[in-house]
Design a protein around this nucleic acid. Structure first.
Lengths: 290, 290
DNA sequence: AGAATTGTGAAAATTTTATCACAAGCCGCA
DNA sequence: TGCGGCTTGTGATAAAATTTTCACAATTCT
């Protein structure tokens, strides 16, 4: 490389703060498909980023290039240089950090968790679970424990938009017996229980089961004892280089479920979502869609 | 042309034997600086390979492309795909599910998010942030918004064990002005703000800043407006095939931070953890671990 | 309301591509 | 050696695409 070690990507990143809306939109688009997106025609890039052609032209000059072709030449130069590096292997995620840095170690572990967890999920079971949760006739109770109640809440928050008829039950609270009074046959309990498994939650599961409810369990690889009575059980690998376990994989699973359920109920929940979005939409950050 | 696994490089190599002298010369030149050399102007490539312009034009058509631009488009396409980590290209994560299944689509998107996000984190910044959060002299305020308050709570929950002196402030609540009364110079605000950015949170950040606090912002790729006044900013890619964004990447980041901070304070953390464990054991909240 | 930013549409300048006819070069073969 | 057949380069040119720039309107921000 002729000039310096600084890549165009770095250059753009540093400028990111001083850019205006459209420019940032463009910059992010360039970084998004880096470097391929910058190697096509200018007009294609503009359309891709959702900005106008002149914006791209102005931006390129702001970056210090005389014109778009020169900018492209820079990208190609860089590309040629990186391919030469034998490091093409991706053993480091935070590329700027040494491979032993916690950023890389942790990420590596979580990815391994994801691979393991997803590899074990039976899609039919998954679909069945989603069907259950999409069924608006059934009331859904979402039960979280000491650590998992934040996950439960997150799940609740989103499911609330997708469908009516659900309740968030913190198993740590002592009010949960009241909720159970209303539980009826066919209702669904989505129960979070990871180590150390909580007695409260177990009790709650037992009672719910005895009342004829369906139990969907979200647990770890060692499986909460609840799994013996649960109808559907998702076990997630949660190990991490930390004093605690990682819930990131569970988060991924939850979001996937939300997405699936939302799709199942799409026609009916679309309006709910749009209404909500409108209510919360205060930002002018994005161009209006036309 | 789109769906097959065959790269243009393969295609060229296979043809290599049937080519004439000038064509082979060209082909080798393309492979030499693959793919950068093919992404410049046709004339540059010709000169590079030491062949004439028409030779390149003829060759490209021999490869089955309608013209040089189309050939370039193919290269770019390929480049875009290669940039995806081998791990992310794995098209079936839930191996039993078809590759179009939401389980695979969502997972792939999240992995791509992780790759992007981690790739942009500067490890020095990360370390600096962790140092700040490990400093027990500073009081730490953790601020979440409408969606992110669950993340904030999760973060709070764990940081609480690692160190004293921290407060969880839900920006949605109207009680937060009270918290600010106590904020003093040198304190740290960890602020969560993803689209759609919340005015409450922005106001809170402004006031905190004006009182001399350090601001650590956790936001999305578009960056909350708060980033202009923040001392440290982590931007996470959060796009997903869903009506909502995915917080899984943020979760990963948070857990990594927790792990790093915990390591910094280990001697003290250890005792706190043990104390906590004892307390929970005594109250029999958990089943015995065997 | 005024300033800054951005998009529109278009036209002009430039570059790039595609092609052509033809000469020059290379090769095997008699 | 010299002859055809094929390949390749030259130089020129037409066609196409791309870049660059402009003025002005729309918009967003302050």
């Amino acid at each position: 490389m002729a000039s310096t070690e600084r890549t165009i990507s770095d250059l753009i990143q540093d400028m990111l703060d001083d850019l205006t809306r459209a420019e940032r939109q463009l910059a992010l688009s360039v970084l998004e498909g880096y470097p391929a997106s910058g190697l096509g025609p200018l007009s294609a890039l503009a359309k891709d980023a959702g900005v106008s052609v002149p914006t791209v032209a102005r931006m390129v000059q702001k970056l210090g290039y005389k014109g778009y072709p020169e900018f492209q030449a820079g990208l190609r130069e860089e590309l040629k240089a990186t391919v030469k590096t034998p490091i093409a292997k991706h053993d480091s995620w935070a590329e700027a950090a040494p491979s032993g840095h916690i950023l890389n170690r942790f990420t590596e572990a979580v990815l391994e968790n994801i691979r393991h967890t997803l590899g074990q999920i039976d899609p039919d079971t998954f679909d069945r679970a989603c069907d259950l949760m999409a069924d608006k006739e059934r009331h859904i109770y979402i039960v979280g424990g000491r650590i998992t109640h934040t996950l439960a809440e997150y799940f609740f928050l989103h499911m609330q938009v997708v469908r009516p008829n659900l309740t968030h039950v913190p198993s740590t609270s002592n009010t949960w017996p009241h909720y159970l009074l209303n539980a009826k046959e066919g209702d669904v309990f989505v129960i979070f229980d990871v180590r150390r498994y909580e007695n409260n939650t177990l009790k709650l599961a037992e009672i719910a089961k005895s009342r004829g409810a369906k139990l969907i369990l979200i647990t770890d690889q060692w499986r909460s004892p609840i799994h013996q009575m649960s109808d559907i059980c998702f076990s997630n690998r949660i190990g991490a280089p930390s004093a605690w376990d990682s819930m990131a994989t569970i988060m991924l699973l939850l979001e996937t479920i939300i997405s699936a359920v939302q799709t199942l109920n799409w026609s009916e929940t679309k309006e709910r979502i749009e209404g909500l979005e409108d209510m919360f939409d205060q930002t002018k950050l994005f161009r209006k869609f036309t």
